Amino acid sequence: MTPFSVLDLAPVPKGATTAEALANTVSLARHAEALGYRRYWLAEHHNMVGIASAATAVLIGHVAGATQSIRVGAGGIMLPNHAPLMVAEAFGTLATLYPDRIDLGLGRAPGTDMATARALRRGLSGGDEFPQDVVDLIGFLGEAEEGQKVRAVPGAGTQVPVWMLGSSLFGAQLAAHLGLPYAFASHFAPGALDDALATYRRNYRPSQAHPEPYFMLAINVFAADTDAEGVRLRSSMQQAFLNLRRGTPGYLPPPVEDIAAIASPAELAMVEEALKVSAVGSKASVAAKLDALIARYAPDEVILTGQIHDHAARLRSFEIAAEVLAG
């Protein structure tokens, strides 16, 4: 059985409050834990009213405190926004509070627009410093050396597992070079998936913590009792992605019966290409698509995401997916 996990952006549905969105995140995390999901990851985004996971480390602590055994982590922390020492201290604290349950995925993008990136006060050159920042962060989480002047307290010695996230060859190459597990953002940027995976596996350099490459595939899932209902549920994510590309991001829209009625053919083609790594529809349809993706990419783990407007339908979607993957 391929292990399966959850990626959550804490979406704020249109008509709901941020407090309700955060309560939904806790509800889904508990549901996922009961269904056998391995991890529950949260993603850092800023200046987006429809996403409530900006203070990612804070929310990770909240979710970890509301669950018992599921691993909780970042998918990911956008490292250019942060000083490596502060990330090490935050996740060292989480690992001290919740031993052997915290993961730290690292991304290179700012997770927002350039104006907001400037407001985050790490400048716009973080991408150029990213490889060294990753190395520094891993060092802060390792055992402190005698005479070391700067230590992460808490953090040093916690050995929080670090993952590389990516949607291009850059992340694949860095993950391979450093001997880190690698998660590809195929749920919204699948264009370089095949090349990135081949690069990662071909160039992997074993590390002490990870003697073998470990690849996680991200998949959108919109599962329901019928194919038609799964397609309808997916329309919320399609609209959200379309609004983002139009420069008008907002709350997660309610589903529509016909997405073609509110988007041009060119826009629909763009959305379909971006979201093509998706399993949509009834249990049988979702099973067929998940089986095909796992057979093609042979991931060591899959991480499922699905921005669905109705919380009960979202819980049901992850339940159906778990039934498929555990079967």
Rank of each mutant, 00 (worst) to 15 (best):
D300E: 14
G155M: 04
S167L: 11
L124K: 09
L97Y: 04
Q159N: 15
D133T: 05
P11L: 12
G107E: 14
Q239N: 08
K149H: 14
L165V: 02
E143K: 03
T116L: 02
L193E: 01
T93G: 00
A19Y: 08
H82S: 03
G171F: 14
D133H: 11
A326T: 15
A23V: 03
S207M: 08
R296P: 10
R71A: 02
P190Q: 12
Q159W: 09
V302A: 09
M237F: 05
A172Y: 13
A269K: 13
I294H: 06
G166N: 06
V162Q: 02
P3H: 07
M48S: 06
M216Y: 04
E145C: 07
M114A: 12
R151G: 04
A269R: 13
A88Y: 01
H45Q: 12
M114G: 00
M114E: 15
L106E: 03
E229F: 05
G191E: 15
T226K: 11
A115G: 06
G171D: 10
E272V: 00
R122C: 09
F140H: 07
P99M: 05
A298C: 10
V58R: 07
G36C: 07
A172L: 08
A175I: 06
G179P: 06
I308E: 09
A185S: 10
P190S: 06
F188L: 02
G123K: 08
S53L: 08
P190N: 06
E323H: 08
Q239T: 09
V271H: 04
Y251S: 07
T93R: 12
E273L: 00
L97G: 02
A144F: 00
A263Y: 01
G111W: 05
V150N: 04
S278R: 09
L9A: 03
P161N: 04
P265F: 15
V280T: 11
A313I: 05
V221I: 13
R121N: 14
T17R: 06
A312D: 12
E267K: 02
Q159T: 13
F222M: 10
F215M: 07
L169A: 14
L275M: 08
L217M: 07
S264T: 15
Q159Y: 13
Y98I: 02
A298K: 15
R234T: 10
T226G: 08
H210Y: 14
L42E: 01
S53T: 03
A209I: 13
I102G: 05
S53K: 08
R234C: 10
A34F: 01
R121E: 15
R201F: 01
L141E: 01
A198C: 05
E33S: 03
P131I: 13
P254D: 14
A109M: 06
A117Y: 09
A32H: 09
D291W: 04
L275F: 00
M48R: 13
T199P: 00
I303E: 04
A115R: 11
A19M: 09
L293W: 13
S186R: 05
Q132M: 02
